[in-house]
């Protein structure tokens, strides 16, 4: 019998199950795009029949990091940029968990960029939602890795001399097997994309455009948006790597020219997840490791029997 009975349990969930009684109302500013992520995640979790006790949501630091306070599940609000390494270890330790990591554009594409690149490369079976508002919000409006060139702020008084980072292209090149962009103003698409991302076996990256009405007033509210998968103007095959790459490049350019493109950019259902690869080479057990510590019949190996001969 599993020591983790919440995992895989058949449940009917209302999305209100994911609203914590202690802090039901978020402290995000009125009109903040982060509300859109919270709503989409609650809707997706309910639609998938997940229970709060089988989900582990890890976050970094920033407005996005408050997601843990407003979403009822196991949560780990980590340190700036480090939600991914903690998330992927939890998944390796207990693969039955549904693991979602989240962070902002500074958190994920700046300070945590190295982890983002390597988690994508390894194709861990987790979902990563990046609240991309093109600015540092909680520290009051500094230029971020996705701020457009020329962006003025107290830390870039003459306008940023840097071109913005390309989150979708970077994700594809690093090795993510599911890459999408959605926007807070598009709640139905957002929920559907998060459902797909959680279902996907492998690293799924959702770049979630979240408008910041307080510190990024100059930026558009990400409307009107276009769903590239529905629009006749954008014909491409999102299972083809090079076509996906071109579409991403166009999308990243278009954002700074006033056109908001969203949708599923790359989907690779064939690539095995990291866990599968690791099991294939014999470096990960078939049974969840976390269960073993509750298995009274397990005979724990010891040095004296297993390793001393080569030292004699």
């Amino acid at each position: 019998m599993s020591a983790f009975s919440a995992i895989g349990e058949e449940t009917e969930q209302d999305q209100n199950e994911f609203t914590p009684g202690l802090e039901p109302q978020p402290t995000w500013c009125p009109g903040c795009g982060d509300f859109g992520v919270l709503k989409a995640l609650k809707g997706a979790a309910a639609e998938l029949g997940l229970s709060p006790d089988e989900m582990m949501v890890t976050t970094g630091i920033g407005c996005s990091g408050k997601l843990n306070s407003y979403f009822n599940s196991y949560g780990f609000h980590t340190i700036h940029g480090r939600s991914l390494p903690i998330a992927r270890a939890a998944k390796l330790a207990n693969p039955g968990l549904t693991v979602v990591a989240a962070g902002g554009d500074g958190d994920g594409y700046g300070i945590g960029g190295n982890h983002f690149m390597h988690t994508a490369r390894e194709n861990h079976d987790i979902t990563y939602i990046v609240f991309n508002n093109e600015i540092f919000g909680l520290t009051k409006g500094q230029t971020s890795p996705t701020s457009p060139m020329g962006h003025k702020s107290k830390t870039q008084p003459h306008g940023s001399a840097k071109t913005p980072l390309r989150p979708l292209s970077m994700s594809l090149n690093a090795g993510a097997s599911y890459v999408a962009r959605t926007a807070a103003v598009n709640p139905n698409q957002a929920k559907d994309i998060i459902v797909e991302a959680i279902q996907h076996d492998g690293f799924s990256h959702v770049d979630f455009l979240t408008q910041c009405p307080t510190w990024n007033k100059d930026a558009r509210q990400y409307v009107p948006y276009i769903d590239i998968n529905d629009s006749d103007d954008y014909e491409f095959d999102n299972t083809d790597r090079s076509e996906a790459s071109e579409m991403m490049f166009e999308t990243e350019n278009a954002l700074h020219e006033g056109t908001v493109l969203t949708g599923r950019y790359y989907v690779d259902e064939d690539r095995p997840s990291y866990q599968q690869e690791k099991q294939r080479i014999g470096e990960m057990p078939e049974e969840p490791l976390a269960e073993r510590y509750f298995d009274d019949s397990y005979e724990w190996e010891r040095t004296f029997d297993n390793f001393l001969d080569k030292h004699k």
């Binding site: 983790f4 349990e9 006790d53 599940s73 949560g75 780990f76 039955g96």
Partner: peptide
């Protein structure tokens, strides 16, 4: 531990 029924909490 995550996955245990009735054990959810926030680590921060």
């Amino acid at each position: 531990l995550p996955g245990q029924k009735g054990g959810r909490y926030l680590a921060t």
